[in-house]
Amino acid sequence: EPELVFKVRVRTKDGRELEIEVSAEDLEKLLEALPDIEEVEIEEVEP
């Protein structure tokens, strides 16, 4: 069974934007590691 992958769009407080694809596990780590995120948009990517 393929692992869930999420497309994550992040905007930081200083206005930088970042778009990455991460696994569910990595997404959890990412959110814990970035306390200064202003906006996060997450969508599931079809395998």
Rank of each mutant, 00 (worst) to 15 (best):
L27I: 05
E46P: 11
I42F: 07
E3M: 05
E1V: 11
V45R: 08
E1R: 14
V40Q: 02
E46Y: 15
D26N: 08
L34P: 01
L18F: 14
L31W: 06
E41I: 14
A24H: 06
L4F: 11
E3D: 10
F6Q: 07
I42M: 05
L27Q: 00
R16Q: 09
V45M: 11
K29Y: 05
A33C: 15
R11Y: 01
E38R: 06
I37L: 09
R11I: 07
V10Q: 00
R9G: 00
V10W: 10
E41L: 12
L31Y: 04
L27K: 01
D26G: 09
E1L: 12
K13A: 08
I42D: 02
V45C: 09
E3H: 06
E1A: 12
P35F: 15
P2T: 07
E21S: 08
L18V: 08
D36V: 03
K7M: 04
L27H: 00
V5E: 05
P35A: 15
F6C: 14
R9K: 08
E39S: 14
E41M: 12
E25H: 12
R16D: 04
R9W: 00
R16T: 08
I20C: 13
R11E: 01
V45A: 07
E32K: 12
K29R: 10
V45G: 06
V40M: 10
E28N: 09
V5L: 10
P35D: 14
E41S: 12
A33D: 08
P2G: 10
E17Q: 11
V45S: 07
K29I: 05
V22I: 08
E17Y: 15
E25G: 11
V45W: 09
I20G: 01
E38D: 10
S23G: 08
P35C: 14
V40C: 15
I37K: 04
K13L: 06
L4S: 03
R9L: 01
V8C: 05
E28H: 12
P47R: 13
V10D: 00
E44Y: 11
A24K: 10
G15M: 01
I37R: 05
V10Y: 11
E39I: 15
T12H: 06
L27T: 00
A33H: 08
E1W: 12
L31N: 01
R16C: 13
V8Q: 00
E17I: 15
R9Y: 01
E38Y: 13
T12D: 03
P35S: 13
V5N: 12
K7G: 02
T12I: 05
V10R: 00
P2V: 07
L30I: 08
V5T: 07
L27S: 00
E28P: 08
E25Y: 08
A24V: 08
S23D: 04
K7P: 14
A24M: 11
E21M: 15
G15W: 01
I42Y: 07
E46A: 11
